[in-house]
Design a protein around this nucleic acid. Structure first.
Lengths: 334, 334
DNA sequence: TAGTTTTTTGAAAACGTTTATATTTTTGAA
DNA sequence: TTCAAAAATATAAACGTTTTCAAAAAACTA
């Protein structure tokens, strides 16, 4: 009726629970006959261990926690799938927690449910990080650079990505390049801009302040930003850039829609490049040239580093992964 | 150094662990002064309860498990996000498990880690389902109809969706309609086809066998199926249908690419309709007319039904949700 | 003040495991 | 056969909680 425990198996097999435990866990100390009998009984009773009991006693959960505030967008699907794949391959279960409740998150991480955790897109105070460190909780960040005794990170090189995009456009002959930024202070957006600026600076070029738009990493905001930029540029007689670099693909799409609306053809009149290579990028018309994040590589590295921390290694160095330029149709030479 | 337990708090506060427990859990029986003192000590020591200990003792986890074999595609992101939202609102944590390992899955579900589980896109034998039922594990299926004492389901009405698409096309004047099926025996695909057939039958029409293509719910397979269909139709002088209904959006996209490749314009020459309303549908050119699954509604209902089962209700009736026709550009009147 | 009731606290059991140690059984040598 | 050693099994403690029940302290009552 109610769930079968190890006690039931012991009673039914006429043996003590410690013997059952040893038989089930393959500790090589129980007589083959007894073991066979116990296994038969366990199977007949459809015994399945209570993982909570096991975990409480053993202190280990063989489980990795993946914490994130939201899971929207194609990026997460791919990341989670890859993480699940690699953790399973390493003999660990992956447990995804979606929440933005700071207190809830800390409580869960500190609840001894995981051998280690992956953190993404979360607001966690320095004080909280210190607590995790003092409790020796292995942590890997997937969205920002951070290292401590028990924590490390695996992130993309957004600076390099911006630099690569810059050089690609420069080599296509572009000189007047605008940047559509994400929210003020968003690390990725700022790094991409910095990389882009470096590429320009190396050829003694720069982005004029008026070419810096606020797209908020959203389609509509980018659309509006580009629209009002173009209109005021026309009024003031300012030159329109020959290329727009958007902080991410979504805002690139917003930008392209605005350009089309204002009568500009992409890429004939204006080039547009994004970052991320989301699903839509390939299907949009024109197909979007962008920088692809090597998500599978990030997942593999994250799991690897986390396992190192779990195994007892300390001060594991952070990893920075390069992106890959995916050349499609939205940018061309001038 | 190592993690603070309730014992440490008790010792530091000079009181027994049972008193600490009561103070922390707000059992209204401990003297205000004592409680205040204990709370202070707990805070100072940065005490955070061991959830495993709590769960073992209480037998409840306040956690819902969401099991799925894979998480690719835009559908899952939205579903998980909505599930997380609604479960959090109900005071339950949501725990996503991604695995295709039948044994692993059963072991986890039966490991007393969850108060109830949501199952999606999983291969589970009838025998396993019986085990879950005998252990009184509340279960809600999100991908197939099933009910038992402790299980129920929340699914879309694929039949109705097919019927709606059929009527929409008929009202646009279409009479020659082809269907691009998923894998043989896939429930959704067959239901959609059945609904479509009913709409046709009501006007004394039918789908000829040669208009039934195999698209396997994949872009490439659909592309190939449509391509070879058209070519052989040309050779044999058969009429080309005026509309293609694809079993899902992905195969609709494959179909449109094949049609375009063969010189047909969508929707001028041929109409195409899909199912699901995936992200790309809106951005593809022409934007895809499709049936949208009300994902948020499914998430809300799933959580609701699961909570009913958890609370002790039995034989909870399954829910069937209607889809919504999203009219875009890929189908038009003839 | 002494007895009684009420409030507050503590000791101990329990949840389902694993594992260290103790006990029993079996084996093998003399 | 007997006894020591080896092998197999059992007992009990422990993991960190909550909760029942008993004990102690405080507050009334007469």
């Amino acid at each position: 009726m109610t769930k079968v425990t190890i006690k039931d198996v012991a009673r039914e097999a006429g043996v003590s629970i410690s013997t059952v435990s040893k038989a089930l866990n393959d500790v090589n100390v129980v007589k083959p006959d007894t073991k066979k009998h116990i296994l038969e009984v366990a199977q007949r009773l459809e015994y399945s261990p209570n993982l909570i009991g096991q975990r409480l006693k053993s202190g280990s959960t063989q489980t990795i926690g993946f914490f994130t505030s939201s899971v929207t967008g194609p990026y997460f699907s791919l990341l989670m799938d890859a993480l699940a794949h690699f953790s399973e391959k390493s003999g660990y279960g992956l447990n995804v927690y979606i929440s933005s409740d700071r207190h809830q998150i800390m409580n869960t991480i500190r609840g001894n449910l995981f051998d280690g955790v992956l953190l993404f897109d979360l607001v966690i105070s320095d004080q909280d990080l210190e607590i995790l460190n003092s409790e020796k909780m292995p942590v890997v960040f997937l969205d920002r650079k951070y290292t401590s005794e028990y924590a490390t990170s695996v992130i993309f090189d957004s600076f390099q990505a911006g630099y690569d995009v810059g050089n690609y456009l420069l080599n296509l002959g572009h000189r007047k390049i605008a940047y559509i930024a994400g929210f003020e202070g968003v690390y990725d957006s700022e790094q991409r801009l910095a990389g882009l600026r470096k590429a320009l600076a190396e050829r003694s070029l720069a982005i004029p302040p008026s070419y810096l738009l606020q797209g908020l990493f959203e389609e509509e905001a980018a659309y509006n930003a580009v629209l009002s930029f173009i209109r005021s540029a026309r009024i003031q007689g300012t030159e329109i850039p020959t290329a727009f670099v958007a902080g991410n693909d979504i805002s690139a799409i917003g930008a392209m829609k605005a350009l089309k609306y204002e009568g500009y053809n992409v890429p004939e009149d204006v080039s547009v490049i994004g970052f991320d290579d989301i699903d839509i990028a390939e299907y949009f018309s024109p197909a979007l040239t962008t920088i692809r994040n090597p998500i599978a590589a990030q997942a593999r590295q994250s799991i690897n580093l986390l396992l190192q921390l779990i195994k007892g290694e300390r001060n594991v160095a952070a990893k920075v992964l390069p992106g890959e330029l995916i050349i499609r149709k939205s940018a061309r030479n001038i």
